[in-house]
């Protein structure tokens, strides 16, 4: 995941035309990637700009979670996705790749298919909220990219996720 977040924050830096070097931003990005949502306060904290992808991932929330072997959106998930849709509508210059993930309790192929179901559930919800399908692309990682690596439900719950990864460009 870390490299994905680095990519986002590099994009953020370019979008803001910030003079801070991307290395520092990437450092903040790693923190955000761990889900803390409290980036170090710096004069150019990208998360303070509500139109930034950093704001999207940290303040709005870039992910929704799922129960074991399901792709049904929870009420909390729907609330997050409604807010995601609002941000995407306000920022039409961005597109998104929705990554579907599974925990390690499952075979590789099944989990790839499960991740595809989860990313599609998010995509369909965003489309139902008025986001153009052409701005969204679904991607499954199955169990290949866990966020947390303990073998307990506390970690598994965070790994069963779909993450909306913002990228520059109006369509993917």
């Amino acid at each position: 995941m870390t490299h994905t977040y680095k990519a986002i924050f590099v994009v953020a830096a370019l979008g803001l035309g910030a003079c801070t070097n991307p290395g520092n931003l990437a450092g903040n990005g790693s923190g955000a990637g761990a889900g803390t949502g409290t980036g170090t306060v710096t004069p150019v904290d990208p998360a303070s700009n509500p139109n930034s992808p950093a704001y999207f991932s940290q303040t709005i929330g870039d992910r929704v979670l799922f129960a074991v072997d399901t792709h049904t959106l929870t009420d909390a998930g729907r609330a997050t996705l409604t807010a995601q849709a609002g941000w995407l509508q306000a920022n039409p210059e961005y597109a998104a790749i929705i990554e579907g993930h599974a925990d390690e309790q499952g075979t590789r192929e099944h989990n790839l298919a499960l991740g595809a179901r989860r990313s599609n559930a998010v995509s369909e919800f965003l489309i139902s909220q008025g986001i153009a399908a052409s701005r969204l692309r679904t991607l499954t990682y199955g169990k290949e990219r866990p966020l947390e690596i303990c073998s307990a439900e506390s970690c598994y719950a965070k790994n069963r996720r779909a993450v909306t990864v913002i990228s520059a460009g109006a369509g993917v």
Binding site: H71, E109, L112, A113, A116, R117, N120, L139, T140
Partner: peptide
């Protein structure tokens, strides 16, 4: 997205999974 490929016994055909619109 496509994954889980295997050859047929004669090596000319591939059988695999394809995910489209969330369905595999």
């Amino acid at each position: 997205m496509s994954f889980a490929p295997r050859f047929s016994p004669n090596g000319q055909t591939v059988v695999y999974s394809l995910s489209s619109g969330g369905n595999t």
